[in-house]
């Protein structure tokens, strides 16, 4: 199958596959010595967002990722990768810790969206996302965000404000799911396929819109078909960019980050 025949809906399907590698797979294979850190120091530990410290070759970095399950059972434990406010607050805590110890931050985005539950609203889902977005915009260390699967809505953007934002070739990134888009704008959720084609949610679309910086190649059929290659591609990119971004002065880094989002209109 050549690239031209792959539709946006194919990418959506691929991005959601259970067997598609998840954040932990990337963390375990790109980095060494990953030590997971838990909790938001306020309410609890959200298992749909994982984070900790790891070595990227010889550089200590903070890694954060939205974590979907790798099995049906794990998916329930991970809440299908839909974080609650405490997940975003844990992510923010780890980012501020990274800033204190001058560690670059690498985030992995893979979520159908922030969890729309009663508890989430009671604990301030909107505030948690807003604060994470705001703080990321001024965090004084390099940030690289990688969309590895499904990047959907504010729940994705909450850990998506970085100096570099990149997508795996078969990942998608959008304002909401194509099903949600279809049900709101076409009043028919079964038109999700049409929605996907019109939403400009593929890596290629987002590169054209200048919302992302780079597309990381995947083998035919998806990352799981040759995971070693994908890990290799992504690792090379991260090593190179961490090195480049670390050379910049904090002032320059933050001004570039501000302008990167400032000009999207």
């Amino acid at each position: 199958m050549s690239n031209k025949q792959i539709t946006a809906w194919d990418r959506v399907t691929c991005a959601r596959q259970l067997e598609r590698p998840k954040s932990l797979d990337y963390i375990e294979n790109i980095f060494t010595d990953f030590i997971e850190l838990h909790g938001d120091r306020c309410f609890g530990d959200d298992k749909s967002i994982i984070g900790g410290i790891a070595m990227l070759e010889n550089v200590p970095v903070t890694v954060i990722g939205e974590q979907k399950g790798r099995s049906a059972r794990e998916n329930i434990e991970r809440n299908f990768g839909m974080p609650n406010p405490e997940g975003y607050r844990k992510a923010l805590r780890l980012m501020e810790q990274a800033e204190k110890f001058h560690r670059p931050v690498i985030t992995f985005i893979d979520t159908p969206g922030a969890y729309p539950g009663m508890g989430a609203e009671e604990r301030g889902q909107g505030e948690a996302i807003a604060k994470s977005i705001m703080k990321m915009s001024s965090l004084k260390v390099p940030i690289i965000c990688v969309v590895i699967g499904e990047g959907s809505s504010g729940g994705a953007l909450a850990i998506g404000v970085g100096d570099k934002v990149v997508m795996l070739e078969n990942s998608v990134y959008s304002i909401l799911s194509p099903e949600g888009f279809a049900s709101i704008l076409y009043k028919d959720s079964s038109k999700a396929k049409d929605a996907a084609e019109n939403m400009k949610m593929t890596a290629e679309d987002l590169k054209k819109l200048k919302v992302i910086d780079e597309i990381i190649k995947e083998p035919e059929g998806g990352a799981q078909n040759n995971f070693e290659d994908v890990v290799d591609n992504l690792k090379k990119y991260l090593v190179k960019e961490v090195k480049e971004l670390s050379k910049k002065s904090t002032e320059k880094l933050l001004e570039n980050r501000y302008q990167k989002f400032r000009k999207i209109y």
Binding site: S137, S138, I175, L176, I184, V211, Y258, R262
Partner: peptide, 18 residues
């Protein structure tokens, strides 16, 4: 967010918060 503008709308959250 303004659904009709897709990802561009989402990015306004980052722009305004920054």
């Amino acid at each position: 967010a303004r659904m009709q503008e897709g990802i561009i709308s989402l990015m306004q959250m980052a722009k305004t918060s920054a």
